[in-house]
């Protein structure tokens, strides 16, 4: 497993320079706009994209078929990929928070608590996205799974857009009970989000592992 993680980090090394440039660019933009949360969100997303790159590198090299012949189980390979996804998201969130903290100290932008919150929510969204996307990538490969990502991204937007339209047209009336429920849930977001994320991760990992066990290389 350690070897797999090392392999991934070595593969990401060539992205370092681009990341350096992007840090400076977004950092500057964030500083001039006076809002650190912009930078935090961007960074969580940027690191999230690296997970996709790792999958493409492995696919391009046809690595998995080779790795299975090594003293590594199929479970280890899937675990390695999920672990990298979580690690990269976590690093992204920490990076974003550190920047926000720096902005807070130097320029008094946003509160620290607010920054932790926005980084945490960003990470949760990324992990949720991958929980849905990774079984598809495991089954179809990054290239073919692209359409699925599009759907994963677009469906929530489309639903919200449609609901919004219906409400505006007066066809859909939101009952007070529903608003109350949302307000009630909002108070417990700190518990609900981690539970949902963990649950999604668990289900996603089980599905991916099952797909991987039956996959041909």
């Amino acid at each position: 497993m350690k070897g797999l993680i090392l392999k991934d980090f070595i593969n990401l090394k060539k992205n370092l320079k681009i990341f350096g440039v992007l840090t400076l660019l977004y950092g500057f933009m964030s500083y001039t706009s006076g809002d650190a949360s912009f930078f935090s969100t961007i960074f969580t997303m940027l690191f999230a994209i690296l997970t996709l790159s790792l999958y493409s590198y492995d696919e391009m090299a046809k690595w998995d078929g080779y790795a299975i012949t090594m003293p590594i189980s199929k479970e280890n390979i899937v675990q390695g990929k999920y672990l990298m996804m979580i690690l990269l998201t976590f690093i992204g969130a920490v990076f974003g928070f550190l920047f926000a903290a720096l902005m807070y100290i130097t320029a008094g932008m946003n509160s620290l608590l607010q920054s932790i919150e926005s980084c945490g929510i960003g990470a949760a969204v990324v992990i949720l996205f991958y929980s849905i996307a990774l079984p598809f990538i495991t089954k179809l490969g990054v290239e073919k799974a692209r359409l699925i990502f599009f759907a994963v991204y677009m469906i929530p937007f489309a639903i919200i857009f449609l609901i919004n339209k219906e409400i505006k047209a007066g066809k859909l009336v939101i009952s007070d009970n529903f608003v109350e429920l949302v307000n009630y849930l909002e108070r417990y977001l700190g518990i609900i989000i981690p539970v949902v994320v963990l649950l999604a991760l668990g289900i996603s990992y089980t599905i991916s592992l099952n797909i991987y066990r039956h996959k041909e290389f």
Binding site: K7, I10, N11, K13, K14, Y57, D58, M60, A61, K62, W63, G65, Y66
Partner: peptide, 11 residues
């Protein structure tokens, strides 16, 4: 050993 290297290009 497979036909082709199966190793990552940038290593």
């Amino acid at each position: 050993v497979f036909d082709g290297s199966n190793l990552h290009d940038n290593m």
